[in-house]
């Protein structure tokens, strides 16, 4: 009963948002660190991918991520609908929220979700990849980032993710009752953007080929 009452409250929903968001953030950090293996050559990153399958973390991780993404989205939609109902008549002289990151959380989340679908078709299923050979992570990545529109889509998605984290990482702490300086979220978001964008940048600049 207590748990249900907590889940039904707006504060409880924000806590769900925060916990699932932190889970997804930890995954994003781990994924980024894994990506950097590309700088050690084809053997390193292909071997890393094979090792992940060997130790059997892939499927448990997928279930965990699916749960986090599902809850994160359900609660986000519930809160967005609630917010819309709370102000049926808007202002004639409106003003947009000052924090760009805060006001793009909802649509930015949609952009990230759409990219994730493409990303899974591209590099997990391989059907949207110009090379698309299972296990040849290095070659798949290089084939992708030789196409300017793939680089563009990837960059936009990573920046959207960065903005999402810029507000989200700080907001998650606040929702869980911890007041942290906003700068922490900026540092985390910048580091994640830099890490992810280093891979397409390396391919475009010919460091990795």
């Amino acid at each position: 009963m207590q748990t249900l009452r907590l889940y039904r409250s707006t504060v409880g929903k924000k806590a769900v948002m925060a916990v699932t968001g932190v889970g997804l953030l930890l995954f994003v950090v781990g994924h980024m660190v894994g990506n950097l293996a590309i700088f050690s050559g084809p053997a390193a990153i292909d071997g890393y991918a094979a090792w992940l399958r060997e130790i059997g973390v892939v499927w448990p991780l997928r279930f965990g991520l699916l749960l986090c993404v599902g809850l994160h989205m359900v609660v986000a939609i519930q809160l967005a609908r609630r917010a819309r109902k709370a102000r049926p008549v808007g202002y004639e002289h409106g003003r947009r929220p000052q924090s760009y990151a805060a006001r793009t959380m909802r649509w930015g989340g949609v952009v990230i979700a759409l990219f994730v679908v493409y990303h899974l078709l591209d590099l997990t299923a391989g059907v949207a990849n110009p090379h698309g050979v299972q296990g040849e992570v290095y070659n798949n990545l290089v084939a992708d980032f030789r196409l300017w529109y793939v680089v563009l889509a990837y960059t936009v998605a990573v920046l959207a993710l960065g903005l999402h984290i810029r507000h989200g990482a700080w907001s998650a702490l606040q929702s869980l009752g911890v007041t942290a300086p906003r700068g922490i979220a900026l540092v985390v978001a910048t580091a994640i953007c830099a890490g992810y964008l280093s891979v397409p940048a390396a391919v475009v600049l010919g460091v990795v080929s």
Partner: peptide
């Protein structure tokens, strides 16, 4: 009462 939920926008 029908108030919306806080999303820490800080407005």
């Amino acid at each position: 009462l029908g108030f919306g939920g806080c999303t820490n926008a800080g407005e």
